[in-house]
Structures are given as C-alpha cells and as structure tokens.
C-alpha cells in the first residue's frame, strides 16, 4: 500500500514464501471448521434430546435436491483441483474454464438452495413465524438449526465463489501464473472446506430420517 512498498520485483520475489501462505490458509481453515463446530455442537445436543423430532424433520426435507447439491459440490471440488494442475502445466485457458465451471456449480447450488428454502417458506416454515412457533418443540429446533447451518454454509458458498471469481481475474491479468499459484491453491483449499462442510451437513439433515 502507501508505505515503502515500491520494492523492486526481485526483492518481492525473495520475500515470497508459499509455504507460509499455505500455512496461514490452513490455520484460517481451522477457524472456519471451528466456526461451524459451534453449530455442530448444538446439533449434537439437540439431536440427542429430540431424536424423534429430528427424524420427522429429516423426512420432510427434499432428498433429491439435497443429493443433487452434494453431487454438484463434489464435482466443483474436482474442477477446482483440476484447474490448479492446468495452471501449473501452463494451460491458462483450460484453467479459467475449469474455474468458470466451478463458479457455475456454486450458482446452481445456490439456486437449488433457494428453491428448497422457498418451498419451506411456502409451507409456513419461516423463522420467527407463528407456524414455526406452533411446531412440536424439537421440530422447531430442527428447522432453526437447518436454517442456521445451511444458511451459514450458503454464505460460505457465496464467499468462496466470489473469491474464485477474483482469482480468475488475477489469472487473466497474469498476477497468478504457473510459477506463482499460491493464491489459486489457497482459494481452492477454501472451496474444498466449503464442500467438506456440506458433506457433513447433508447426512445430518437429509439422511437421518
């Protein structure tokens, strides 16, 4: 920024420490897992307290949409990984297409999520609504957790996709290249975490029935 950072390129290269940036990213990913960890803790307690309600709640969720979204996210994780390989081999265009596909997956995921939430809202399952309040105790908690956890996850999908878009821009401007791809790798790691959290959310909400 404004400071004495008009350093010559050679000096900047000497300061580059890809291992440090990867380490920083892993630490950050820990914090993301722990952020969700708080919610998983709530889930575990309430699940133990209201097993029947959670069973009933799980049955009411749309398994097809959930499974579709799982496939979409896993595929997108694959394409992110492939994009890194592509860039390292100097196939910039291929890399960009793979990233674009990943972002498209993210958009589709969010679209499905929107449809799913929309259906729930349509049935009166709106947080804070009269209908929610009148549900049996455990079910209201189930849906509360469902909205909180998939909502926070959806937020992470949006953030992750935005990061990938930004990375695409950097690649087009040759700020990220086959020799200097730590940023892409870190963005990819972040995307894997987003994917991984969903892999836990899916069985916990959709498959417990």
């Amino acid at each position: 920024m404004a400071e004495a950072h008009a350093a010559p390129a050679a000096q900047l290269a000497a300061h580059r420490d890809d291992q440090a940036s990867k380490m920083g990213m892993w630490l950050f990913l820990f914090t993301e897992i722990l952020l969700f960890g708080g919610l998983f803790l709530l889930y575990a307690s309430y699940r133990a307290k209201y097993p029947q309600a959670f069973h009933a709640g799980g049955q009411a969720l749309d398994l097809v949409l959930g499974a579709t979204n799982t496939v979409i996210l896993i595929t997108s994780s694959l394409t992110v990984a492939l994009s890194i390989t592509a860039l390292r081999r100097g196939q910039t265009v291929r890399c960009l297409w793979l990233l674009a596909f990943t972002v498209a997956c993210a958009a589709t995921f969010m679209l499905n999520k929107g449809i799913e939430w929309g259906a729930k809202f349509h049935h009166g399952l709106i947080p804070g609504s009269e209908h929610m309040a009148r549900l049996p105790q455990g079910q209201s908690i189930f849906y509360g957790l469902y909205f909180a956890m998939t909502g926070l996850h959806g937020l992470h999908v949006v953030i992750g996709a935005s990061v990938l878009l930004w990375v695409m821009l950097l690649i087009r401007r040759s700020k990220i290249t086959g020799d200097d791809y730590a940023v892409l790798e870190n963005a990819g790691l972040y995307w894997h975490i987003v994917d991984m959290v969903w892999i836990y959310l899916f069985p916990l909400f959709y498959l417990i029935a």
Partner: peptide, 14 residues
C-alpha cells in the same frame, strides 16, 4: 433478528 429460537426454552431450546 431471525428468531430461530435455538436458545428459547419455550420452543425447546436450552
């Protein structure tokens, strides 16, 4: 803001 009720004893929260 969203009234999820996760800690509300009235709705089964703890």
């Amino acid at each position: 803001v969203l009234h999820l009720g996760l800690f509300d004893p009235g709705r089964g929260g703890d």
